[in-house]
Deep mutational scan, measured.
Amino acid sequence: MASDGVVVEIGKVTGSVGTTVEIPVYFRGVPSKGIANCDFVFRYDPNVLEIIGIDPGDIIVDPNPTKSFDTAIYPDRKIIVFLFAEDSGTGAYAITKDGVFAKIRATVKSSAPGYITFDEVGGFADNDLVEQKVSFIDGGVNVGNATPTKGATPTNTATPTK
């Protein structure tokens, strides 16, 4: 695992066909100046998982989280898009600690492993708008004895992609 920078880890949970599971997305290594904004994309298989919603985690402190935390689910493109932009203008609602960034709610549709993997990152910046190093650890849903650990090695991303 990367020793510096922010680590975004997609949790690994267990479920069975027809059940709804909650998959946490963790941030670790949050910089001392916090995270003022970030955007990134995960990939998944809508034939295996139906993403039914995404909720902000406990490290989102904006009293009205829909102003700073936004997501979009595109089953036709097989992606989930995340956007966080601190909304106070003063840094008061920045992410300042490690913990759960988001909770992905999904219904298991198939007995195949439900991988959720890193696809791309736009950027991560602290309260001074300084770009942060970030790496990703894939996860998803274990169905029966299947284990979604494909790509469990962190993917280092030093520069934003478009």
Rank of each mutant, 00 (worst) to 15 (best):
Ala102Trp: 12
Val25Ile: 09
Glu120Asn: 03
Phe82Gly: 01
Val141Trp: 10
Pro24Tyr: 03
Arg77Thr: 02
Val141Asn: 13
Glu9Arg: 08
Gly53Phe: 06
Ala106Asn: 05
Gly57Met: 13
Pro46Cys: 08
Pro75His: 03
Ile104Arg: 01
Pro154Ser: 11
Ala112Phe: 03
Ser88His: 07
Thr117Ile: 14
Asp138Val: 06
Phe136Glu: 05
Gly18Cys: 06
Val41Ala: 01
Asp70Gly: 15
Thr66Ile: 13
Val81Met: 01
Pro65Trp: 15
Gly144Gln: 08
Gly89Phe: 03
Asp4Ala: 06
Pro63Ile: 12
Val100Ala: 11
Asn37Asp: 02
Ile23Glu: 14
Lys78Asp: 15
Arg105Met: 03
Phe69Ile: 03
Thr153Asn: 09
Lys150Ala: 11
Pro56Asp: 11
Thr66Trp: 14
Ile59Gln: 13
Asp87Gly: 14
Pro154Asp: 14
Gly140Asn: 14
Glu86Cys: 00
Thr157Leu: 11
Arg28Glu: 03
Tyr44Trp: 15
Val30Ile: 13
Ala102Thr: 10
Arg105Asp: 09
Pro75Ala: 06
Val21Asp: 13
Ala125Cys: 06
Ala158Ile: 10
Thr149Gly: 12
Ile137Thr: 11
Asp119Thr: 09
Val8Met: 02
Ala106Val: 13
Val121Lys: 13
Thr20Val: 09
Ile51Cys: 05
Pro148Arg: 07
Thr14Tyr: 05
Ile59Met: 15
Pro24Thr: 03
Pro160Phe: 10
Asp45Glu: 08
Ala106Leu: 10
Lys78Arg: 12
Asn142Glu: 09
Ile95Ala: 10
Asp62Arg: 14
Ala158Leu: 10
Ile79Arg: 01
Gln132Ser: 05
Phe69Asn: 01
Thr117Lys: 10
Ile116Tyr: 06
Phe40Pro: 00
Gly29Tyr: 08
Glu120Tyr: 03
Glu131His: 02
Val17Gln: 09
Thr155Ala: 13
Ser68Gly: 11
Phe27Glu: 06
Lys150Ser: 11
Val13Ile: 11
Thr14Val: 15
Val48Ala: 09
Leu49Gln: 15
Pro63Gln: 15
Val25Trp: 06
Gly5His: 05
Thr66His: 14
Thr90Asp: 13
Lys133Gly: 04
Ser111Asn: 13
Gly15Ile: 10
Pro148Lys: 05
Thr19Leu: 10
Gly18Ile: 14
Phe124Arg: 00
Asn64Tyr: 12
Gln132Leu: 09
Val61Phe: 10
Ala2Gly: 04
Phe42Ile: 02
Glu50Asp: 12
Pro75Tyr: 13
Asn127Met: 02
Val134Asp: 00
Pro113Ser: 04
Phe124Leu: 02
Asp45Met: 08
Asp58Tyr: 06
Val61Asn: 15
Val21Leu: 14
Asp4Met: 03
Phe124Ile: 02
Ile52Gln: 04
Val21His: 05
Asp55Arg: 08
Thr155Met: 11
Phe136Arg: 09
Lys103Gly: 13
Asp87Met: 15
Lys67Gly: 13
Phe27Asn: 15
Lys97Leu: 10
Lys109His: 09
Asp4Leu: 05
Asn64Ser: 08
Val108Ile: 10
Asp62Glu: 11
Gly89Trp: 15
Ser88Cys: 06
Pro65Ile: 06
Thr147Gln: 08
Asn64Arg: 07
Asn145Thr: 11
Arg28Thr: 08
Gly139Ile: 02
Pro113Phe: 05
Asp119Asn: 05
Ile137Met: 08
Gly89Pro: 04
Ala106Glu: 02
Ser68Ala: 14
Ile104Ala: 08
Gly18Lys: 07
Thr66Glu: 05
Val134Ala: 08
Asn142Phe: 07
Phe136Trp: 11
Gly91Pro: 14
Asp4Asn: 08
Ala72Gly: 02
Lys97Gly: 14
Lys78Thr: 04
Ile10Pro: 06
Gly140Leu: 12
Asp138Cys: 05
Phe27Ser: 08
Glu22Trp: 15
Tyr44Cys: 15
Asn47Met: 15
Ala125Arg: 00
Pro113Met: 02
Asn64Gly: 02
Thr66Asn: 06
Thr96Arg: 12
Thr159Tyr: 14
Pro24Ala: 04
Asp45Pro: 11
Cys38Lys: 01
Val17Trp: 03
Gly91His: 03
Asn127Phe: 02
Asn142Lys: 08
Pro65Gly: 09
Ala36Tyr: 00
Gly114Thr: 09
Val21Phe: 13
Arg77Ala: 06
Ala152Val: 13
Ile73Lys: 03
Thr90Pro: 01
Thr107Val: 12
Gln132Trp: 02
Phe101Gly: 04
Val13Lys: 11
Ala146Val: 13
Lys33Ser: 03
Pro113His: 04
Tyr74Lys: 00
Val13Met: 03
Thr117Met: 13
Glu22His: 05
Ser16His: 09
Pro46Lys: 11
Arg28Phe: 11
Thr157Asn: 13
Asp39His: 00
Gly53Thr: 10
Ile54His: 03
Asp45Asn: 09
Asp70Cys: 14
Gly140Trp: 06
Lys109Arg: 12
Ser32Phe: 05
Cys38Phe: 01
Glu50Trp: 03
Asn142Gly: 08
Asn156Ser: 13
Ile80Met: 08
Ile116Leu: 05
Val130Tyr: 11
Lys12Thr: 12
Thr155Leu: 10
Asp98His: 08
Ser111Cys: 14
Asp126Cys: 01
Leu129Gln: 02
Ser135Tyr: 12
Met1Arg: 06
Asp128Cys: 04
Ala36Met: 01
Pro65Ala: 11
Asp4Phe: 14
Ile104Gly: 06
Thr157Cys: 14
Leu129Pro: 01
Arg28Ile: 08
Ile116Met: 03
Phe101Pro: 07
Val17His: 09
Thr161Tyr: 12
Val61Arg: 05
Lys133His: 12
Pro46Leu: 06
Val8His: 00
Ala102Arg: 14
Asp55Tyr: 04
Ile60Asp: 07
Lys33Tyr: 01
